[in-house]
């Protein structure tokens, strides 16, 4: 691989620019769909681009007494960890380096932003930021467990801790989506918590805690946080598609790309519909629902898969 090809790969096609377009496109789809579900017109297609550009060109102020270096590092680190996770997830029809245990690496990298989100609340010292940060940590302890338990059904069946192994197993046994539809739905509800989407947008609930940990952020830092969240949506949805529809996946082929896009759009429609349909849960309701109902269910599901 020569240097121009390398730069092209990093910056344009499977790299930064493509991911940016994908993430912002999905964000627009989400906002448009929710608007249509509510009987509104919704924003034009360029809306997320305009929002981001405007935020990057705005003044950046922080409350007095905050540590500027620390607060600037938080959004940068979370952005970097999501981008690194995306490097190991086969977006579109790209081939990625795969090794035993890369699944765990991806899960870890995807959960780093949630922890930094909590720290962002503490670092900016606002009352609402701190409450939002605490809520995000509480939420983290419930959905993260659920997401990992639910998605590990695919690991148990394919007997491999690598993304490539899960794909190979699906070529032999067929896609996991039908035999494990139950695990898929559980993983999807975990993902909603991870992305802090409605009905689980408890840490940034507008009418309760203003904007949660991001209340005191403005300008470039806010833009990076928003971008991180959008990229996380792409990463989470691609991971789900990859783990449950793996056999549809043809590497380095146009049909693979088309299948990926269609599945991605369908999953985004599902997420938007869920956000538009359900009202926000209270934090104690969420934790009770997760630990009393969904996590035991996913444990039972895994037990069934092991016995079978």
């Amino acid at each position: 691989m020569n240097i121009t090809e390398f730069l092209f790969n990093i910056l344009i096609f499977p790299g930064f620019l493509f991911l940016l377009a994908l993430a912002l496109g999905l964000d627009w789809l989400d906002r448009k769909l929710i608007a249509r579900f509510q009987g509104r017109v919704g924003p034009p297609w360029y809306q997320p681009w305009a929002d981001l550009l405007k935020l990057f060109a705005k003044e950046d102020i922080l409350p007095a007494g905050t540590n500027v270096v620390f607060t600037s590092l938080l959004p940068l680190l979370s952005f970097a960890s999501v981008m690194t996770a995306l490097f190991y997830i086969p977006i579109a029809f790209r081939r990625v380096p795969s090794f035993q245990g890369d699944f765990i690496v991806i899960m870890f990298l995807l959960s780093v932003p949630s922890l930094l989100y909590f720290l962002a609340g503490w670092a900016t010292k606002g009352v609402y930021s701190i409450i939002g940060g605490n809520r995000s940590l509480l939420q983290y302890f419930s959905y993260e467990v659920l997401f990992l338990l639910a998605i590990s059904g695919t690991i148990i069946t394919s007997n491999s801790w690598s993304i490539e192994g899960i794909r190979q197993a699906q070529f032999e046994q067929g896609a996991f989506i039908l035999p494990q539809i139950f695990g898929f739905l559980l993983a999807l509800s975990g993902l909603i918590g991870k992305l802090k989407r409605g009905p689980l947008d408890i840490p940034k609930a507008n009418s309760e805690v203003i904007a949660g940990p991001l209340t005191e952020f403005s300008g470039k830092k806010l833009a990076l946080w928003i971008l991180t969240n959008e990229l996380q949506t792409v990463a989470g949805l691609s991971l789900l598609i990859y783990c449950y529809f793996g056999n549809l996946w043809q590497m380095n082929k146009l049909s693979g790309f088309l299948i990926f896009s269609v599945l991605l759009v369908l999953m985004q429609c599902l997420l938007s519909a869920i956000s538009a349909m359900y009202a926000r849960l209270r934090i104690d309701q969420l934790i009770r629902l997760n630990w009393y109902l969904l996590i035991p269910l996913s444990l039972l599901h895994n037990l069934y898969l092991i016995i079978k």
């Binding site: 906002r31 608007a35 509104r40 017109v41 919704g42 924003p43 034009p44 809306q47 305009a50 929002d51 609402y128 507008n206 009418s207 203003i210 904007a211 209340t215 005191e216």
Partner: peptide, 11 residues
């Protein structure tokens, strides 16, 4: 007004 990109922020 979201069709003009107007969002009501709370902070």
């Amino acid at each position: 007004v979201e069709r003009f990109g107007i969002l009501k922020e709370s902070t």
